[in-house]
Computed example of a mutant assay.
Amino acid sequence: MGSFRPGDPRQVQDLFEQIAPRYDLLNDLLSLGQHRLWKRQAIAWLRPRPGQILLDLCCGTGDLALVMAAAVRPGGRVIGLDAAAAPLRLAAARAALQPWLPLQWLQADALATGLDAGMAHGVTMAYGLRNLADPGAGLAEVLRLLRPGGRAAVLDFNRADATKLQGRITARVQRLCLRGVVVPAATLAGLREHYAYLEASLERFPTGAALVEQALELGFRQARHRPLAGGLMGLLELQA
């Protein structure tokens, strides 16, 4: 395993500061571009409309926020928030090419955003919940930020249920992909430890069923977890 410790806010921030310049290229290569389709499915659950205020937590280089910003015009706004500065600089540079998009970038902790309660019609988080020190607290902050009836979409790797045969098969395929494809490819880019971190972070991540249960206990009115990519990824669909 790599030397980055899952759940350690400083180490996770350092990881994303370091991989930011090659993050988008590696995502495209390693998913064969499929991550863009998964993110579109997350946005589809939000049903963004003109005039809405949307929030993209752990926004990284801003691909989700850019798409959503086009959907909330006119009169709406999208705030992209991330703890790491390097991805935000790349996001701002991308947004500068489309200055008509209503975008705002904010460097902050997704567990303590400092934003007003009930300010968002919708919230997205792609590949961020798993990296938080406390995923449950992350879901609680999402609920706090949403206005009643607002929707949230949380996209991430799927932690397969090892108590079921299908889950064990999925987990094995996932490990083979990470160890046999992802880490070797990242090694060529000089990022072996950064991507070896993925498997370690997944080991502490709740299953889809556990995330649904936790979300309902927190007070979400609706929660559903949809496996994507044959169960390798998962989309948690929430409504406040």
Score class of each variant (00 low, 15 high):
Leu202Gln: 05
Leu165Asp: 13
Gly62Met: 01
Leu143Pro: 02
Pro50His: 07
Arg10Ala: 09
Arg73Asn: 12
Ile19Met: 06
Pro148Tyr: 12
Cys59Gly: 06
Ala240Lys: 08
Leu143His: 12
Phe205Leu: 02
Thr113Trp: 04
Leu103Arg: 09
Trp38Ser: 01
Ala189Pro: 07
Leu64Thr: 10
His225Gln: 04
Ala160Asp: 04
Leu178Ser: 08
Ala83Ile: 13
Val67Gln: 11
Arg168Pro: 07
Ile43Gly: 03
Gly80Arg: 14
Cys58Tyr: 02
Leu55Trp: 05
Arg204Phe: 05
Arg49Cys: 11
Ala160Val: 05
Val12Gly: 01
Trp38Met: 03
Thr61Ile: 04
Arg172Phe: 14
Gly219Tyr: 10
Pro74Val: 14
Ala162Asp: 13
Ala93Lys: 15
Ala71Gly: 08
Met233Gly: 00
Leu216Asp: 02
Gly118Cys: 11
Gln222Pro: 03
Pro21Glu: 08
Leu216Thr: 00
Ala140Cys: 08
Pro148Phe: 11
Ala120Arg: 08
Leu211Trp: 01
Leu232Trp: 04
Gly219Gln: 09
Gln239Tyr: 03
Tyr197Val: 11
Gln11Tyr: 05
Leu143Cys: 07
Gly33Lys: 11
Cys177Phe: 15
Ala200Ile: 08
Leu176Phe: 14
Asp156Gly: 05
Ala171Gln: 12
Trp38Tyr: 02
Gly167Trp: 10
Leu15Val: 04
Pro135His: 01
Leu235Gln: 00
Arg77Tyr: 10
Ala229Met: 01
Ala189Phe: 14
Leu145Trp: 06
Leu232Phe: 00
Leu132Tyr: 00
Ala210Arg: 05
Pro99Asn: 15
Ala196His: 12
Leu146Val: 06
Pro87Ala: 15
Leu115Asp: 03
Arg172Leu: 14
Arg179Thr: 15
Ala96Cys: 12
Asn27Val: 03
Cys59Ala: 06
Ala110Cys: 09
Ala133Lys: 07
Arg22Trp: 10
Arg94Cys: 13
Leu218Phe: 02
Ala120Trp: 07
Pro102Ser: 07
Arg221Asn: 09
